Simulated assay, not measured.
Amino acid sequence: MIGIIGIVCIFAMVFGGYLAAGGKMAIILKSLPFEMMMIGGAAVGAFLISNDMGGVKHTAKDMAKVFKGAKWKPDDYRDLLCLLFALIRIARQNPVEVEQHIEDPENSSLFSKYPKIQADKEAVDLICDTMRSASMNYDDPHQVEEVLEKRMDANLHHALHSSHALQTVADGLPALGIVAAVLGVIKTMGSIDQPPEVLGKLIGGALVGTFLGVFLAYGLVGPFASKVKAVVEEDAHFYQLIREVLVANLHNHAAAICIEVGRQNTPSHIRPKFADLEEALKAIKQDAA
C-alpha cells in the first residue's frame, strides 16, 4: 500500500507542480510515446543483455515486493521460535523421534503446525540440515556457525541480484534519456528553416527525453531497487534467527535460553513480545505433557 502511495505522490507532485507553474501537458504527451519507446526499449534491451533468463524472472518476481513488503511478519518469528523450541526439546528427550521430523518435514506433524514455514524450502532445509549434522556428531558450535554464515551470505547474495539489476538499469536511464534528447535535437536541426513556433515545439519534445530518463531513474526504478533490497535484507533476519537459536543449542544452553537468544537478536520492530512468546511456549509444553 505504501508503495502505491509513494508512486501517486511522485506523479502528483512532479506533474502537479509543472501544471501549477503554467506548463502544458500537450507537448509532453505528444512526445511521450516515442521517447518512452527509445528510452524504455533501450533500458529493457540492456537489461536482457546483462541478465540470463533466471535473473530476468527473478527480478520480475521480486518487483512485487515493493508493494507486498517483507514476507515474514512478527507472528511468523514467534511461530519459528515455537517450532525450534519444540524441535530442541524433542531432540534432547528422544533423538530417535526428532529424526522423523527432520528427515521428512513435508509430512511432519510438527512442521505442519506452521504451514507458512513448512512451505519455505530454505528455512526448512536450514533447520533440518543443521539438526541432522548435530545428530551425526558434527556439533562444534564455531564450525557450524561458520558454515551457516557462509550459506546465508550466499543466499543473500543471490536474493539481492534483482536489486542490483534494477539499480543498474536506473544508473543507465539518464544516459539513455540524453541519447533520446540528442536524437530529438538532430530532428530539430533538420527543420532549422521552420519558424520559431515549430522549432520551440521540436526542442521541447527533445527535452522530454532528458526529463523522462532522469524521472524514471530517480523517481521509479531507483526507488524500486532500494525497496527490493530493503525487503530482502529484512527477510534475511528470519534465517539469521534460525542460526542464532541452533548455534545456541549446540552450546548446550537450556531450550528456553536458546529461544531467548534468538528473540533478543531479532530487530525490535519484528521481535515477538516476551509475554506472547512465553504463552505460546507454555502451550507447547502442555501439549507435550
Rank of each mutant, 00 (worst) to 15 (best):
L277T: 01
A175K: 10
G69W: 08
G213Y: 08
H253K: 05
E103K: 12
P141C: 13
G3A: 14
F67W: 14
Y18P: 00
N94A: 14
L216W: 07
L166H: 02
L48S: 10
I7W: 07
I192G: 03
E99A: 03
L19C: 07
F34I: 11
F211R: 00
A255L: 09
Q240P: 00
F15G: 03
A170H: 11
F238K: 04
V147R: 06
A255S: 15
K71H: 10
S191R: 09
R263G: 07
E279S: 13
E233R: 10
R151H: 10
G55N: 11
L277K: 01
G17P: 04
G262K: 00
Q286Y: 08
L250E: 04
G219H: 04
A256N: 12
M63E: 08
L202C: 10
I27M: 15
H164I: 12
K285C: 11
I102F: 09
N249C: 06
F238C: 06
G172S: 14
A159T: 02
S112V: 03
R78C: 13
N252V: 09
E99I: 04
A134G: 12
V169Y: 03
D104E: 12
E122K: 10
L212S: 04
K65I: 06
V228T: 05
G41H: 11
G3K: 09
V208Q: 07
A20L: 15
K116H: 14
V185P: 01
K65E: 08
F111K: 02
D75Y: 09
S109E: 15
F34V: 10
Q194R: 13
D193F: 07
Q286F: 04
